[in-house]
Design a protein around this nucleic acid. Structure first.
Length: 542
RNA sequence: GCGCCCGUAGCUCAGCUGGAUAGAGCAUCGGCCUUCUAAGCCGAGGGUCGGAGGUUCGAAUCCUCCCGGGCGCGCCA
């Protein structure tokens, strides 16, 4: 099609332009349309309609594909496809089954998708949940487009925050045996540490509190970190998110990579000393200013291990590193990109996806959360109340960079007001047809079915839309935007529900029923595949 | 003050590498259950696409400025 247009343009002696074909939103404008004549008209300074007429007359299309060509509006060329060409996609969907929508664009390249990466200092909150849903869906999208994906969680177990956690727990241990102790400055006040301290005393005996402070804090650190990590993993697993690799910051120090990175930057002449500190010339690579690597007291800033961590990703064989970061970290993107550019990494190696904060509304008012005060909505609280499907769907139905309001009341409604069920219900209805008909959906084939009988407008629209799924998946993967899948699924569900309501499948007459079963099966496959990509179940019954 | 993101229907948001009358869900109003699940369908009302300029045959989409909201701007993590 595209090729035929290109040839026609060439034959007419017009300059070469990119031929863009799109599906017009108005069915009155055909099945496919192109605006090449408008582009050419502008370039040639000739009326676009004349150019369009010439192209339309010149273009030679394989018979049986296009039924009608028309020039319309300011110079669009509209095409109407023949019935066979349109329904041609249905057997392909049935044959591909679970694989429908997949592609091999990624060509087996290794990609690392790092997300959540919460400090091991407390339970995961709703913000982590949005990151988890997003990262997992991005990973799934990349897998669907042929990448080899590793889902990774990075643990800052060597920093100040963990130290504060350890000292906070130690203080709780002292309190548990009746001593006066205060949570240190910047420490963690959450009740989970009170519980953990009590547990510790129960398990280890009161003697635990008598340990020298240094050793007590050290053991508290180990115990608290292990405990928090276990709890986070449980929260994530029950949310349907699993990681292939948990990468510890402390691993980096053992590997010597941290010092190595500093050395490599120095060799390239990209560092300098000033005011007793060591600086990296990130401003030469697009950052707003240079950054400190080693403070004047001799210790490293967190920036150094972070750079080393990303270098390690490359050394582990990954060709792309995608990080899902909260909005509060967006300022570090140019800095990290600059550091990696300084080390000679290609610009497309590192990509950060910024996820905006989530506000949670309940009963019409905002639920505030803060780790300091120990009062917040945890991720587990949220999905235990709304269900995993609803929570994941809500997190993904909006663009990552939109600040959005999670309405718990809406998500928990078991009624038509809840958008989660809309897509699932469309899938359920298709399943219901097969169940009622006593048909095994996996055995439905298109062989021998006369698909040209699917001539109702609702059927034509639905078929066209089902055919777009692979493109939608590719685009979503390319842009790292899972919400495109949700938007698409809602469109499919709307068309499915409208079709289902207006036309019967079972009992429509032998030939028509046969054809409609193929369409119902194709719709079910697309809905199921799309839901799987975003980590939401596709139920048989509701 | 500087940087990034956002500003589209009453509410929550799609649409943004420019294209034909700006979409969905919720909310409001009116219809539809003897037939594959009404968690549904059909219809109606509702918009200066934050504002002002500019580029273009054509701007929600690109550019500039302004207004409003969020986040970030440390030898903190």
């Amino acid at each position: 099609m595209r090729e035929a247009l290109r040839r026609a343009i060439e034959a007419l002696g017009f300059p070469a332009v990119e031929v863009v074909l799109q599906q017009p939103r108005d069915p009155g404008h055909g099945d496919l349309a192109t605006n090449v004549a408008l582009k050419l008209g502008a370039q040639l300074k000739r009326p676009a309609r004349d150019v369009a007429e010439q192209i339309a007359a010149q273009v030679q299309l394989a018979p049986g594909i296009v039924e009608k060509v028309e020039v319309a509006g300011p110079g669009f060329i509209n095409f109407w496809l023949a019935a066979e060409a349109l329904t041609d996609v249905l057997p392909r969907i049935l044959e591909a089954g679970e694989k429908w929508g997949r592609s091999t664009r990624g060509a087996g390249k290794l990609v690392n998708v790092e997300f959540v990466s919460a400090n091991p200092t407390g339970p995961l909150h709703v913000g982590h949940g949005r990151g988890a849903a997003l990262g997992d869906a991005i990973a799934s999208l990349l897998e669907a487009t042929g990448y080899e994906v590793t889902r990774e969680f990075y643990v800052n177990d060597a920093g100040v925050q963990v130290d504060r956690l350890a000292r906070s727990l130690w203080a709780r241990v002292q309190q548990a045996v009746g001593r006066e102790a205060e949570i240190p400055e910047g420490g963690y006040h959450g009740n989970y540490l009170v519980d953990l301290a009590r547990e510790l005393i129960a398990a280890e005996g009161r003697g635990f509190a008598e340990l020298p402070e240094e050793e007590g804090v050290r053991r508290c650190r180990e115990i608290a970190v292990r405990r928090q990590r276990e709890e986070q993993d449980r929260d994530l697993a029950d949310f349907g998110v699993r990681f292939d690799v948990i990468y510890w910051e402390s691993q980096l120090y053992g590997s010597g990579l941290v010092d190595d990175v500093l050395r490599r930057l120095g060799e390239r002449g990209l560092t300098y000393e000033r005011d007793g500190a060591l600086w990296l010339r990130t401003s030469e690579f697009g950052d707003a200013k240079d950054r400190v690597l080693r403070k004047s007291d001799g210790s490293y800033t967190y920036f150094v291990p972070d750079i080393a961590y990303h270098v390690a990703k490359a050394e582990r064989g990954f060709e792309r590193a995608i990080d899902v970061w909260g909005a509060d970290h967006h300022g570090y993107v140019p800095r990290m990109a600059a550091a990696l550019a300084a080390l000679g990494f290609p610009p497309d190696f590192f990509q950060a996806v910024i996820v905006q904060l989530v506000r949670v509304m309940r009963h019409g008012e905002e639920v505030r959360f803060s780790k300091r005060s120990g009062e917040f909505v945890t991720l587990r609280d949220l999905y235990e109340e709304t269900g995993v499907d609803a929570a994941r769907y809500f997190f993904l139905m909006r663009r990552a960079d939109s600040q959005f309001v999670f309405d718990i009341d809406l998500a928990t409604k078991q009624s038509e007001e809840n958008p989660v069920y809309y897509v699932q219900y469309a899938h359920t209805r298709m399943a219901g047809i097969f169940r009622t008909g006593g048909i095994d959906p996996r055995k439905i084939g298109a062989d021998g079915a006369d698909l040209t009988l699917l001539s109702e407008p609702e059927e034509q629209e639905l078929i066209k839309t089902l055919g777009q799924f692979p493109e939608v998946v590719s685009k979503a993967a390319e842009t790292l935007e899972p919400h495109r899948i949700v938007t698409y699924l809602e469109e499919v569900a709307r068309l499915v529900n409208g079709w289902y309501h207006r036309h019967r499948v079972l009992g429509a007459g032998a030939d028509l029923e046969r054809a409609r079963l193929v369409l119902a099966r194709a719709a079910q496959i697309v809905l199921a595949n799309g839901l799987r990509l975003i980590g939401v179940s596709a139920p048989e019954r509701m």
